[in-house]
Design a binder for these strands. Structure first.
Lengths: 207, 207
DNA sequence: GCCTGTGAAGCTATTCACAGCT
DNA sequence: AGCTGTGAATAGCTTCACAGGC
């Protein structure tokens, strides 16, 4: 019932709020948080309404309370444990990125069909051969997967993940996966994003 | 006047159309293309209308003609040359990804403030020290930049890019950049995307 | 019969604007 | 005076639904 966009922004708010909290700030106005996140004050107020957090006109929103509220919103009974499949350049970069404990998110298992990349620890993450998918997903109770395999393999891999109980996928392969409609897919299509950026660049020099 | 969403989808359509063209297919119906791209047929028809390409009820859309039309839509007098700043794990992965000639997009220059990473060729892309930004941007006429530096440096880097004439940014740093409103920014906030994926994962086992 | 092109309707998300509070 | 919470208005996007063509 909370919209996808609101969920995205709540994640963003929390990150900035955590930074502010670390800096000892204890309250913030909607317009200030909005500016940090490049959104409008009205959107911030509506989003916070939607998670049931209320501020006051005097000091705005209490940061610690708000963080706790957003944490609760994101809290899930399922472990936040994530798998990654496809240990290529981008896969490795993601493993490195998340192993740094940048967030409470954890990539718990990596997979690849190339034996030379598996049976080892990469950036604190154990790397398994794809044949162990079922076993490891069951054992660790994984629900979210990051797909990083080449486009020709992506659909097959997605099906394997879904068969084994994965219900949410972050897909970096440049295709659109066909999955049952109860499975969530978020595509990160870098070529498309870059093409868009080029399209919206302006050719005229300044001055 | 063409919406951001339509631009995104046009990029996607073109990619699939190119594959079909290589496979010798010469026409396609809106519902077929829609299915490949996980959108509806009505959206495809509207998008193609918006670039002025017309199909016919008998065979749908001619693939070669449509590709040409989308190419024209994306064609820009500015070179499609792109810079990347921040040669970390993700930066390197992007360089590798685009050096493979996956698309007509080209990362023409990479930058880092760490001297040990510069003055060399990485994945066919010359790597310069950040101090050469102005010179290289001018020389090559770059208009689009990919930011891959740590969050604390990202705002400063964005300002440097904008000062030197970059008008469009693909930002991988987990902050929201403050730039003049005529500069296009697309954020790729991986932590946020992953948090969203986890949020939308479902805890219940099947059966 | 099944397709395209498209006006009109329907939805979703954002912004406006203001009452109420401190 | 300047903030929050929120109904109402607006904008933007998608789907409906159907006339017209092969």
């Amino acid at each position: 019932m909370t919209s996808k966009k609101t969920v995205e922004r709540l994640s963003l708010y929390r990150r900035f709020l955590n930074n502010l909290d670390e800096d000892g700030v204890d309250s913030i106005y909607s317009h200030k948080l909005a500016s940090m996140c490049s959104v409008t004050a009205a959107i911030v107020r509506r989003d916070l309404m939607s998670v049931g957090y209320y501020g006051n006109p005097k000091h705005g929103y209490q940061i610690k309370g708000l963080i706790k509220c957003i944490d609760k919103f994101f809290y899930t009974k399922t472990a936040r444990k994530i798998l990654l499949i496809g240990i290529g350049n981008l896969g490795r970069a993601l493993l490195a990125y998340f192993s740094k404990g940048r967030s409470h998110l954890n990539i718990t298992a990596a997979f690849d069909k190339d034996q030379t990349k598996t049976n080892r620890i990469i950036c604190n993450t154990p790397a398994y051969h794809t044949s162990e998918l079922e076993k490891v997903i069951k054992e660790k109770g994984l629900k979210t997967g990051i797909i990083n395999v080449p486009d020709i393999e992506a659909q097959k891999v997605a099906e394997q993940l879904v068969e084994n109980g994965i219900t949410s996928i972050l897909n970096f392969a440049p295709i659109r996966l066909k999955v049952p409609k109860n499975v969530f897919v978020e595509n990160v299509d870098i070529t498309m994003l870059l093409e868009k950026a080029v399209y919206f660049s302006k050719s005229n020099n300044k001055g």
